[in-house]
Simulated assay, not measured.
Amino acid sequence: MPTTEARRPLASRGTRWARAIASALASSRVTPNQISMVSIVFAALGAWFLVEWPSPAGLVLAAVCVQLRLACNLFDGMVAIEGGKQSATGALYNELPDRIADSLFIVALGYAIGLPWLGWLGALLAALTAYVRATGGALGFAQDFRGPMAKPHRMAVLTLGCLAAAIEVALAGSLHALLVAAVVIAAGSAITCVTRTRAIAAQLRAAGQGP
């Protein structure tokens, strides 16, 4: 895991249940890097549900996998920092599994609605939001986690899309909710790239590094 300055601000870190689970994990032999890797497993499973079993039950399970992936993202950092189990490779494992998990979910979303190009576009733009954030950090600024479609927002949209689609499939046999989710994720990620880039440019200008 990176230092606390590079952590995404999450209100859930201060909840009693999160602290209790993180404490139990920190006391075990589980490492933060292992938790990060498990997030990919949940993402792959959720992607399978989206593409291969888009039934009401499958879509609910996909939504559960999204939340389990986010839980891994929460606990890897808490175990590393609050639990004192940081490692030399933590920053690497903090980023790469996230990019893989994002891509698995969003690409699968495109295939689930019969529009693979939209899933790939959404995944590319989601990865680009992280690239822009990391670029700001590489330039010496605090990493910018603003939205409107940062990772938690993307996963919230996907979760709601899956749950809405589960009801929609049961009632009408269609998946329009997933289409809406895919469009919102792609468009919102594009806007996020712009907002983060403009913020970095403003910081560079303020630092006197050119117009």
Results as ranks from 00 to 15, higher is better:
residue 148 P to G: 10
residue 199 A to T: 09
residue 193 C to V: 15
residue 106 I to A: 04
residue 82 E to A: 13
residue 115 L to V: 12
residue 196 R to A: 11
residue 191 I to H: 10
residue 97 P to H: 05
residue 135 T to R: 11
residue 196 R to W: 08
residue 133 R to W: 01
residue 197 T to M: 12
residue 118 L to D: 08
residue 131 Y to K: 11
residue 136 G to E: 02
residue 166 A to I: 07
residue 104 L to G: 04
residue 113 I to L: 02
residue 147 G to F: 06
residue 93 Y to D: 00
residue 193 C to D: 10
residue 152 P to N: 11
residue 190 A to Q: 09
residue 121 L to E: 02
residue 182 A to Q: 03
residue 105 F to L: 10
residue 106 I to R: 01
residue 128 L to P: 07
residue 81 I to L: 11
residue 192 T to S: 15
residue 90 G to E: 02
residue 166 A to L: 06
residue 90 G to H: 00
residue 175 L to K: 06
residue 136 G to Q: 02
residue 192 T to R: 04
residue 187 A to I: 12
residue 197 T to F: 09
residue 116 P to E: 05
residue 72 C to A: 13
residue 159 T to R: 05
residue 156 A to G: 14
residue 195 T to Y: 09
residue 83 G to M: 04
residue 163 L to W: 03
residue 134 A to T: 08
residue 173 G to D: 11
residue 180 V to C: 11
residue 179 L to K: 13
residue 134 A to E: 06
residue 178 L to N: 06
residue 85 K to F: 06
residue 88 A to N: 09
residue 79 V to P: 06
residue 112 A to M: 05
residue 141 F to C: 08
residue 74 L to P: 02
residue 198 R to L: 15
residue 165 A to I: 07
residue 123 A to G: 09
residue 99 R to T: 10
residue 178 L to D: 02
residue 172 A to M: 14
residue 125 L to F: 11
residue 81 I to W: 03
residue 126 A to M: 07
residue 146 R to I: 15
residue 177 A to H: 05
residue 129 T to C: 13
residue 88 A to R: 13
residue 129 T to W: 01
residue 79 V to Q: 03
residue 198 R to I: 11
residue 130 A to P: 08
residue 172 A to G: 12
residue 178 L to V: 06
residue 111 Y to M: 08
residue 74 L to W: 03
residue 148 P to H: 10
residue 162 C to A: 10
residue 82 E to Y: 09
residue 182 A to M: 03
residue 150 A to G: 14
residue 122 G to W: 04
residue 157 V to E: 05
residue 203 Q to H: 11
residue 158 L to S: 07
residue 73 N to W: 04
